Simulated scan of single mutants.
Amino acid sequence: MNNKLIAHIRDLYQTNDFIPLHAPTFNGNELAYVSETITSTFVSSVGKFVDDFEKKIIDYTNTAKAVATVNGTAALHTALYMSNVKRGDLVITQALTFVATCNALYHIGAEPIFVDVSPISLGLCPKAVEEYLIENAVIRENECFHRKTGQRIKAVIPMHTFGHPVELDELVKVCDKWHLTLIEDAAESLGSFYKGKHTGTIGRFGAVSFNGNKIVTTGGGGMVLCKSLNDGLHTKHVTTTAKVPHPYEFFHDEPGFNFRMPNLNAALGCAQMESLPAFLQQKRHIAELYQSFFADSDYQFVTEPEYAQSNYWLNAVICPDVKSRDELLVKSNESGVMTRPIWKLMHRLPAFKNAMCGDLSYSEFVESHLINLPSTPVIKR
C-alpha cells in the first residue's frame, strides 16, 4: 500500500520533487493587486482592498456582515468576546482540533470542556454534547451552569474538521435547549456548505482563517462571519480599536482590539477569491481520485457527510491500525511526500491537561489512525 500510494500521489502531481501537504496557489491577480497596494502606499489597515475582501466574503457566504482580522485566532477571540464569554466561563468544544480553538479560549480567560467528535463529520458530536449537559449541567434563570463547579457554561464551539461541516441542525437544537451560544470554528471550511448554507453562517458567529495553508490565503488573516448586521457593525468597531469616526480626533468609546487586517493582505485575498471556484473544483477532483484509490482497501478515505458539500481542504484517510499508520507516515515522508497525523488531542497538551472532559473514545481512535494526504488544489491533468 505505501509504495502504491506514494506513486499515486506523484502521478497526481506529476513531479518527483518534494510534495507538500498544502501549498498556496497563485495563478491570478495576486501580484497585480498586491503591487497596487504598494504603489498606493496604503499597505496597512486603511485601503480599498479590506472593504472589497469583506464584501466578497459577504457575497460568497451570504452572511450579514464579515469583518476581516489579522488571523483566524483573532477572529475566534473576537467572536467569543462579542458572545459575552467572560473569564471563568466554560465553553464546550472538541478535543480533536487545532490548538488555535483552545488558544482563543485561553486568551479570553474561558476554560474548555472537551467532548467527543462524530464519525459522520469528525467534528463536534451533538449527542455527546447533549449527554454531557444532561449529566453535568443545570439551567438557572435562562443560563446554563456546571452542576459541580458552579461555573457558567456559555457557548459551544464546533470545528468543521478538514472542511467537513458538522451536524449543525442538531447542535442548534442543543444550544437553544440549554441557552448556549453557537460559535462555529470555520477556519478550515471556506467553500463548504451545510444543507445549502455556508459554514460559519448558522451560529451567531463564525471564524474563518486565511493562513498560508488554507484554500484561500492572505498570508495571515481571518474573518468573523456575523449572522446579525448589528453584531457585525459592533464587531467591526471593536476590532478596529473602538475608534469613533472623526476627521482628525482620536476618541475610543470602549475597550477594543487592534485586530485589523492590513490592506496588503486583503489584496492577496481579493485575488484568491477570484480563483476559489476553480480551487474547489480541483480539490473535489483530487478527493475523488483518492477515494477511488482506496475503494478496494481496508483504508477508509474521509468523505463529506451526505448533508454537506465539503471543500475537501485536507484529504484524510483512516488507516486499519496504528502500525500501518506509523509505517505510512515514515515511508511517505522519507520519500519526499508530506503526510501528517492529526493533531494531538487538546487534553493531552500541557496547557489544557486539567480541562473537564466527556467520553473521548472516537476522538482517541481518530487520533491514532488518521493521516492527512497532499491536497494542494493544482494538478497537471
Rank of each mutant, 00 (worst) to 15 (best):
L21D: 02
K4Q: 15
M159N: 14
S40E: 14
K283Q: 15
G219D: 09
W343L: 06
T239Y: 00
F53G: 10
E54A: 15
K86I: 00
Y290I: 05
S209R: 06
R284N: 14
R325H: 05
E334N: 15
D185I: 06
W313P: 00
V156I: 10
R10C: 12
L168M: 14
T199W: 02
V244W: 04
F251W: 03
L329G: 03
G196H: 06
G206E: 05
V156F: 05
A287T: 08
K55P: 00
Y106C: 00
N2M: 03
G203W: 06
H347C: 06
P247W: 03
T69Y: 02
A64G: 08
N71L: 10
S118Q: 10
T41I: 10
M273C: 07
A287V: 07
P374W: 09
A75K: 09
E184I: 02
Q282V: 11
V174C: 07
K127N: 11
K177R: 14
L12H: 06
W313L: 15
G150L: 02
D253R: 00
L122I: 09
S292R: 12
I318T: 09
K4C: 02
F205H: 10
T25K: 11
K56N: 11
G203D: 07
N372A: 07
K380L: 14
N142A: 13
D116G: 10
I58D: 00
F301Q: 01
V302N: 01
F53P: 04
N263R: 07
H164Y: 14
V317W: 04
D51R: 08
G358T: 03
S35Q: 14
P320F: 08
C175D: 10
